[in-house]
């Protein structure tokens, strides 16, 4: 162990860096876009209750599709090449939306009716109430869902190596193909560490964002 430094420095470090960059954007972009898509759908399921059961069950079915299957089938639907990283981004966005619609809807519904009534009494219009009261109060719930989505997305990215989209998962392929048995584990160890670090970093960023967006939680606790 520790030999992964040896690997990193004796290997084209630039290559690892470019894989890291691909992994970073493949991890970040789907979460952001997924959240933007899930917000209106989740709101719909919250506002019109009859849409909740169908929306949530469709999301559940989508979530059961194996990631590798989506990576393989999407090119046929999108008209992209099978090696195009866009397939991975779209697949991860779909998973994020599927996970978040329920969370957004539940988060919005969890805001107490008293709070909503108070906001109405203070003269908030429907939209103002949603944006200034309901959504901020739902941030902890939505944020928790976002953390799960971000972390599991990162570990799904490596799966794309199987179909040949290059990112940090390539290190695992390198590990399998290395001929010198003595150092064969190094790329895999490096890859696992980098994936862990990236997942942890995303988690931390979202955690910080939640803290910044919910100053009242700290005010109450201290």
């Amino acid at each position: 162990m520790g030999g992964f430094w040896h690997y990193l420095f004796n290997h084209p470090g630039e290559e690892v860096w470019s894989w890291t960059k691909t992994t970073l954007w493949l991890g970040a972009l789907p979460v952001v876009i997924g959240l933007l898509i899930a917000l209106p759908i989740g709101w719909l399921a919250h506002r019109y209750r009859w849409t909740y059961p169908p929306i949530v069950s469709v999301a559940g079915i989508i979530y059961t599709i194996p990631s590798l299957v989506l990576f393989l089938v999407l090119p046929g639907i999108l008209g992209t090449g099978i090696l195009d990283p866009v397939n991975v981004a779209v697949a991860l966005t779909i998973y994020t939306v599927a996970l978040l619609v329920r969370v957004v809807s539940d988060g919005l519904s969890a805001v107490s009716p008293e709070t909503m009534a108070a906001a109405t009494a203070m003269g908030f219009s429907g939209w103002q109430r949603l944006v200034k009261v309901q959504l901020p109060l739902a941030v902890p719930v939505i944020g928790a869902g976002l953390r799960v989505a971000a972390v599991s997305n990162v570990s799904l990215i490596s799966v794309a190596s199987v179909v040949g989209v290059t990112q940090l998962g390539q290190l695992f392929k390198d590990s399998l193909l290395q001929v010198t048995l003595a150092r064969q584990v190094d790329p895999a160890v490096l890859g696992i560490l980098l994936f862990f670090v990236i997942a942890f970093a995303f988690d931390l960023v979202i955690l910080l964002a939640i803290r910044l967006l919910t100053p009242w939680q700290r005010a109450v606790r201290s």
Binding site: V148, V151, S152, V154, S155, I157, S158, V159, S161, V162, G169, L171, F172, S175, L176, Q178, Q184, V185, A188, V189, G191, I192, F195, F196, A199, F200, D203
Partner: peptide, 16 residues
Amino acid sequence: LRAVPTLGLIVLLYVW
């Protein structure tokens, strides 16, 4: 455990 890149761990264990 959710953050573990499953594929990577399988490769690592297999290679080892």
